[in-house]
Design a protein around this nucleic acid. Structure first.
Lengths: 245, 245
DNA sequence: CGTCACTTTGAAAGCTTTCAATAGGAGTGG
DNA sequence: CCACTCCTATTGAAAGCTTTCAAAGTGACG
């Protein structure tokens, strides 16, 4: 589990990494006086199945939350970044592995203390509730993405999602590798690469050196990703197509 | 959002519909004296985007939670059944449409009252927390399923999941259509049908009349679905494959 | 300035989807 | 109670999008 401890951020619902929640009581306060711990790229903060003894707050860097299938296929459930909470779960074991993508700095508190404090503080309870609802919502967005969108739509949507939470400008620096992106989007590295190339050739993005990318035609990209800010249809209720039973 | 208000149930984490939570304070009590409302098959309990005025408890029947893409592609996020909670969300609008698959009976309470009561009752707060964590976990299982499993694994896993929550016996009666299953598994109706036929021809299942299916070789099915109850590997920690960065 | 890991390309293979058409079943009306 | 209609499920065959398998580029580092 993860979630911003005091995030702002908008977040088009379609394809957002973590969740947009209005600033409120800061869950981050819980970690205020805990020491910072550093994690080198590639190292795990905790493993799926391990005793969930702590709850973590990401202070810096990016992590990937992943799960492995018996035959080594890997699925990345999401990425966590500064301000996100990791390891919140009711069960006693972590449900996924959290690995550092970049150098990461975290703070931790005992799970028991986390819940005790949360339970005793109305404002924090509401924050946690919001975070959990957001997490579910994000995971479901991912379900829609994986279940019904093409490779191109996934990649376009991914780039837009990253962009939405990066400082500013058309330039984005992906902290993760193509493999991470592929495992997050349910594709292969090659397909991700091909889509990037394709978007690039069509002038929608510019693939820079390393892992930097510039969005050239955000509007077109949104159209591709199916995240049209179609203002005309904005007011109308979503879609009420009638489906046979 | 949905979740069992007082569920028992085990639930192999891989591919479970709703979530397994130990019995505790019954959230269902909140609905105890509310009148039952009936919904005919195919009718919506609420629409995505609608003002989330109520929280519902399913008393009977099965619903599908779905989302539509701009071009009519549909994704089913999950199914809800007796005991599940629907419509819990922090935001003011429903994030998906809930439609009756079978004849459904529900009870409802105002969202404000729901949260007020929950907030005032420690035991209920913990229940809700557990439900929300479970929902997130379920949605993520689905992400892994859609992102990294083959059509055959998905169908096999789906049948096992349905079986796990049905009364008993090898026989299961699917309340939903092939289309619903397809939209839930991110496949087409034809592919689902072909997989069923294939499993049937190999003797793993027997496709009865209507929507009934018998599991002939549950063990083999589990192997296919990647849900091996491999006792030997049971004790060992999940998987700690080291991934390059 | 090599080495190694990651990314990009190519070409062929594969799994699913599409498009079409044939079964099956449930419900309706004569 | 049977004929008729409609909708859902099953099959087939061809097309397509992704994946696989291989190999060539690129860039970061020591």
């Amino acid at each position: 589990m993860y979630g911003r401890t005091a995030a702002s951020g908008s977040g088009d619902r379609a394809a957002s990494f973590s969740d947009a929640v209005e600033p409120a009581a800061a869950l981050g306060d819980l970690f205020r006086d805990r020491p910072l711990e550093t994690l080198a790229p590639g190292r795990a903060l905790f493993w799926e199945g391990d005793e969930a003894a702590h709850v973590f707050e990401v202070a810096e860097g990016a992590l990937r939350m992943c799960r492995l299938l018996p035959d080594d296929r890997r699925a990345i459930i999401g990425f966590a970044q500064a301000g996100d909470l990791l390891g919140v779960c009711v069960e006693s074991r972590y449900l996924f592995t959290a690995e550092a993508v970049t150098r990461v700095r975290t703070r931790r508190i005992a799970r028991s203390r986390f819940f005790t404090t949360i339970d005793a503080t109305p404002a924090l309870r509401r924050r946690l509730l919001a975070i959990l609802c957001g997490e579910t919502s994000t995971a479901r967005d991912q379900v829609v993405l994986l279940g019904r969108r093409t490779a191109e739509e996934r990649v376009a949507g991914f780039l837009l999602a990253v962009h939405r939470k990066s400082p500013a400008g058309a330039r984005i620096d992906l902290p993760m590798s193509r493999r991470d992106i592929a495992d997050y989007l349910g594709l292969t590295v090659e397909t991700v690469s091909r889509m990037m190339t394709s978007l690039s050739r069509r002038g929608l993005i510019a693939v820079g050196t390393g892992r930097s990318i510039s969005l050239r035609e955000a509007a077109a990209l949104k159209r591709l990703a199916g995240q049209d800010d179609d203002e005309t249809a904005k007011g109308s209720p979503p879609r009420r197509a009638v489906w046979p039973n």
